[in-house]
Design a protein around this nucleic acid. Structure first.
Lengths: 230, 230
DNA sequence: ACCTGAACACCGTTCAAGT
DNA sequence: ACCTGAACACCGTTCAAGT
């Protein structure tokens, strides 16, 4: 009875105003959507299905623009690195330290993204730009090519871990003070004969201060004092 | 016709010799089995189901001894760190550098394991032992408590990334030389105006040498030259 | 050419039910 | 007490079929 009318309804052309054209898919749109999903819903929610859903399509459609989930995350990381501000003022050492700090900060904003940088020479255009600027600063500081090259490797590695750690820290559900108190208690209760330092210097272990800034200074000072060719 | 005999067969007691008692489950056995699965079949194969299968049981049985997959992997990491050799000879700097190198090596033997250390103050008994020994060496070197504490943080962070990178490198399916050649080509083909250093100093970027050893030296030198209290 | 429904081959984790 | 079959609520990825 309703068969043919139902059929004709679904065959009827639908006004574009009632059902407006979707924004066309593209790699850039998928990458930005992935970043939004990651930032708003967390790493667990960053699934191909969820990203597709936000774009009002099916997961299969993403594979035209993105090789797989890892490829998507790598692209998201590079997008995030595109937001790094390149310092212009101060001595070369100040600019280098700020560039490293800015890169760490950019990575730390997005849960789990820093980890995809591990195990793989960077190939993203924005990651490479950061590396090129670091090389320029190191050469400005008078380092030889080999030391500068190795230094950039090490600095990028540090950016990755520091970013990952900071991101994990930012995302921790647990109350930070509670967590530290708990670990502190664990350290204090360790057997003192096997862990003499951890049990005895508890206060210093959790001492406040800008550890991130200090770590970057350590790296730069170390690089200046350690030529690659012994 | 065969109904009752089949039924009686399955009800018949089976000799323990024909079907020997399984080794009883325990946290230690599960952790060691996980490590074996990881080393032999890779990170993708490290599933609760696969570990259980090797132990001739169901995945659900593991949850009596292990909170979840992350807990299992954390325990596996600490087990791996239990294999780190603690150096006894040489100056405190030599012993420290060797301890760091040994720790990196231990982590790098097991794909993906280093990553579980990220984002979380270490609490495994073997990780803590490595940290305690590092603290002892730094204090032997005359560092104040605060600098020593921050230094151990930084060194452990470096052990983690370096281990993760090395592990990824060890596990790479692709021919190493081919991969480097590919990246080198990518760098060379970058626009020279935007990437002046990467395009011009290609040789130095891929220069051979012991980068890992150099990186550890950089860290130690930097730590010695950078007190935590400015 | 571009898109997608449906299926494939898995996951981690829980829990009622068994011994 | 200890163990487990089966189910729940998902995954990433592929591909034949549609428009």
């Amino acid at each position: 009875m309703f068969g043919s009318s139902l059929w004709s309804v679904s065959a009827e052309p639908v006004s574009r105003r009632a059902r407006p054209a979707k924004a066309p898919l593209s790699r850039a749109v998928i990458v930005r959507t992935g970043l939004r999903v990651l930032d708003r819903e967390g790493l667990d929610a960053l699934t191909m299905r969820r990203v597709a859903q936000v774009l009002d399509t099916g997961a299969a459609s993403l594979y035209v623009y993105v090789k797989n989930r890892d490829d998507l995350m790598a692209a998201m990381l590079d997008e995030a690195l595109g937001r790094v501000r390149l310092p212009t003022d101060g001595s070369w050492q100040e600019r280098l330290q700020l560039l490293v700090a800015n890169s760490i900060e950019a990575m730390s904003r997005h849960e789990g993204l820093a980890l995809v940088a591990l195990g793989g020479i960077p190939t993203g255009l924005n990651a490479l730009l950061v590396m090129d600027r670091m090389l320029a600063l190191l050469k400005e500081g008078g380092l030889d090519d080999k030391t500068a090259a190795w230094a950039v490797d090490l600095l990028y590695l540090h950016i990755t871990v520091a970013g990952a750690e900071q991101a994990a820290y930012n995302t921790k559900k647990m109350n930070e003070a509670d967590h530290i108190a708990e670990v502190r208690k664990l350290y204090a209760e360790l057997p003192a004969d096997r862990y003499p330092l951890l049990t005895s210097m508890g206060d210093a272990l959790f001492s406040a201060g800008d550890r991130d800034r200090w770590a970057i200074q350590v790296l730069v000072n170390g690089i200046l004092n350690t030529p690659a060719d012994r």
